[in-house]
Amino acid sequence: MKAVLKKSLAKGGPFIGLILVIVLFSIPTETREFFLTYNNFKIIFTQTVIVAIGALGMTMIIVSGGIDLSVGSSIALTSVTGAMLIQRGWAPLPVLLATVGTGALIGLLNGAAIAGLRMTPFIITLGSLGVARGTAKWMADNQTVNYDTSPINGWMTTADPFSRALPTGVWVALGLAMLTALVLRNTVFGRHIFALGSNEATARLCGIATTRLKITIYTLAGAFFGLAGLFQLSRLRQGDPTVAVGLELDIIASVIIGGASLNGGVGTILGSMIGALIMAVLRNGSQQMGWPTYFQEIIIGLVIIVAVFLDRLRQGRQT
């Protein structure tokens, strides 16, 4: 009985955290009226989409024992790419494939450099963070890329803002989250990702092609980042090469708050999604409280530290 309780606590840690932040923001008089409404949660879900899709890819990378700092720049680059293609009259589906493909290409290059040159992911992706951001600005000639209109603009909103329906982006994120969770848990590819992150030497010893696996992971994650870039474009309705600066930190924080370990081998999609929601609720709540942005930054920073500290306490007690 005690073991069951302990296990559910261990698994539900991030979830308890989410309930806690929601409860905290429901109490003050400033937010009481609007915070706990369906419409506010619709906003929160919509605001979570980009970070959540990024966190799907990042979870795979972090579980494999890696890290990717270039996400924010990848999102900017792919959204600029998408905007330029829309300018040229491309239809939504080709634009979707092209942006996702661009993201995958950045991931492929990251993965090839990390696995091929045997360099640490931190350094390689710190470099590609700069390269991708610079390329985005270069392509966009240091300006926003504007276009008349595109059906893509409707993917992050609903026709009637007060309807109960959720925007396409939310459904896409939800569907992909379920798919990725299944892949991580129940496929050879997914278990090999855990093996690689848990102990690369064991993975090699057991005949796993670690180089190829790493490249695949970064490429697939890159595709997720490209998709996040497309939703960024949909939300802004223009390609902005300066968008999503520092977003990689929000994404990494979501994954870590969700219980993943930077040492690899540990992490769940459910946890990462809850982590992304916690971040979104914190921002949404702070805005409604009328707190200045610098105060939000401080709060979110502290939440990350506390979450990881609690996680370590919990894991320490387990073993």
Partner: peptide, 18 residues
């Protein structure tokens, strides 16, 4: 080198033939 300590017995045991 031999084992993935934070993974399950089943995963460790079947890693070469998943």
């Amino acid at each position: 080198e031999g084992l993935m300590l934070n993974q399950s017995i089943a995963d460790n045991l079947t890693l070469t033939k998943m």
